[in-house]
Design a protein around this nucleic acid. Structure first.
Lengths: 339, 339
DNA sequence: AATCTTAACGCAAACGTTCCCGAAAACGAT
DNA sequence: ATCGTTTTCGGGAACGTTTGCGTTAAGATT
């Protein structure tokens, strides 16, 4: 029971493969009767064109690659859902790759995507990536690339992100307005642009409200809960007594949440806590976690739209669009002191 | 700056493509000097063989496909990590597909995998799947398939799962030993084998301990938190007062956790709660969630090993291995009444 | 010197398609 | 009857590889 090919149909009908090919594509230069017979037999034999052969011939595959650090992060899972939403509608298939925040893996993923003739790629950078040559060379050859969330300034292509500065500013400002006097920040890895921008927003808010910035209570963690738990323990056992924490992501905030509870402190009374992203679980914590909503699904949609546009109009190479999505403050009990 | 092919090398060196091909594969029938020159130029031109052409020729791709309902479920993310672990080491690349618990999507994914000449596939079934024809026909043609976690009895191939019955039995028994008298169960979708097996374990435990089974407090939910939250609300507002809940998965338990907290009830005092899977977040909840540990990573490893073995030895078609992994009870505060 | 090995390489088919060029009928028009 | 037009189709190259088989020239064997 081998897969039926165009040749099988041709042989059976005593016509050439070119005729079959044309008939299947409903070409005008094939007679109505022949067309009919081909279509019928193709139907009966359950013929589907071979994507690999097509790929070899045309140098494209109708699938797009997506590289994310980690699919278990619900934020990325949601972005991917958004990507699939528009890609699917446009007939593209999306192939997911994980870098595991590892530079070498990212390079391998990029190679795989290019070698397999994917039509384009969407990428959110790995924490470890400092060198962008693997993207640069492809981009210079005209390969469509769009960055999202964890973007970089070094490559001139379309990007979609949120206003990290603004979101961080609002979160910090919110804590200030709730009466917090000593607000700590647990940042992400410093080489990630989003980490720096959120840190910047935090600093600016404190500055604007004339609150002294204490470097001792600005810590850094990877974007995951277990490490954030450890870091927060360290923060809480430090010499400075904090009454508010702005975490650079929800995963970090979840770790902090556990550390605060563990230390027997109450939220928001002893410490007000706010995260970043609005992951689905945050509302289910006890107390529910305040956060900055990030339109993950929409980000995926936008990135996919930009990419597909890039694929279909390679000429538009010149102008690079940077789509900056708006964030929204989501206040829940973990930071709500004043009703 | 096109990709360099074997032809480019051949032309440059005034040899035939076959010579280049053989030289690159270090064939004995190529002279030492020629081999040297080819290797050198290939190096300099950064030649890499085209996987698509190879695929067309040899009918395999060195990729394996993985279909899961939802990558944002940390359990599946962990399984995939396990799969990647062994696949990577054996030179295979894993391509991830999501069925979104939708039958049609699953069928599409299967088609895509078969059409792209993937070497094999690993699948955890979608909730909606009742018909297995799309797997059956491929399997009959000798295509390597291994099921994991959400397996089905209808297809005779390798499978990896945990002892759902045993895990559920232990969880229920644990609640009984903690003094719970009225234990509810929130099950998963009934057409999933794992749901039925866990339900069965629950029933058996109650039976063995001579506790009456109340059908009114056996509810069913999809495997996600938001729906479980709603279902649990309904359970709590019912006429039967429960003092223990065994949830069929951690995602369900997280929803129940939120509902219990929301209702002003305390865990484990008013209600003892236990889930299934031991997702990373469960330990960070307040109070921490008891659960049944499921060796997700190991499950992925085992499934991948079975699949790769199947790929490399197509003859072993006959005997189908069912690897049943052991579960482990993880007792945390949400169910710990007796110290 | 005639024949046999062996080493070293080229030809061409094959994988499944598409598509550019013809080319053979059929048909009117002159 | 001759000549352009359509209409309808086939041949073959191309995409990038691998591989079975044929070929050539040198060296070894008798």
């Amino acid at each position: 029971m081998k897969k039926t090919t165009i040749k099988d149909i041709a042989r059976e009908l005593n016509v050439s493969t070119s005729t079959v090919s044309r008939a299947l594509r409903d070409s005008y230069e094939i007679g109505a009767e022949t067309k009919q017979r081909v279509l019928e037999l193709a139907q009966r034999l359950d013929y589907t064109p071979d994507p690999v052969a097509l790929s070899l011939l045309s140098s494209h595959s109708n699938d797009i690659g997506v590289i994310v650090p980690d699919i278990s992060n619900p934020f990325f899972a949601l972005v991917i859902a958004g990507i699939e939403d528009v890609a699917f509608a446009q007939g593209y298939h999306v192939v997911i790759y994980q870098s595991h925040d590892n530079y070498e893996r990212e390079v391998m993923n990029v190679r795989h995507i290019a070698n397999r003739r994917k039509d384009g790629m969407l990428v959110s950078l790995a924490t470890g990536t400092q060198d962008y040559a693997h993207f640069k060379s492809l981009h210079d050859q005209g390969f469509p690339i769009v960055f999202f969330d964890r973007i970089c300034d070094e490559i001139d292509t379309h990007k979609v992100s949120v206003d990290d500065f603004e979101g961080a500013y609002q979160a910090t400002e919110h804590l200030i307005k709730q009466g917090c006097k000593t607000i700590a920040h647990i940042s992400g890895p410093p080489n990630l642009l989003i980490s720096r921008r959120r840190l910047h927003g935090y600093r600016s808010a404190l500055l604007d409200y004339k609150i002294p910035i204490l470097e001792d209570i600005i810590m850094s963690s990877e974007y995951n809960s277990p490490e954030a738990l450890v870091i927060t323990r360290k923060l809480l056992s430090g010499s400075v007594k904090v009454d508010g924490i702005f975490a650079s992501s929800d995963n970090i905030a979840i770790g902090s949440h556990a550390a605060i509870t563990e230390a027997g402190l109450s939220m928001p009374h002893d410490i007000a806590l706010i995260g970043f992203s609005d992951l689905p679980i945050t509302g289910l914590l006890n107390p529910p976690l305040s956060t900055v909503a990030q339109p993950a699904f929409e980000m995926g949609r936008s990135a996919a739209e930009l990419l597909i546009n890039l694929i279909k109009n390679p000429k538009n190479d010149r102008i690079s669009i940077s789509n900056v999505l708006r964030t929204g403050l989501v206040v829940r009990e973990s930071s709500l002191r004043i009703q």
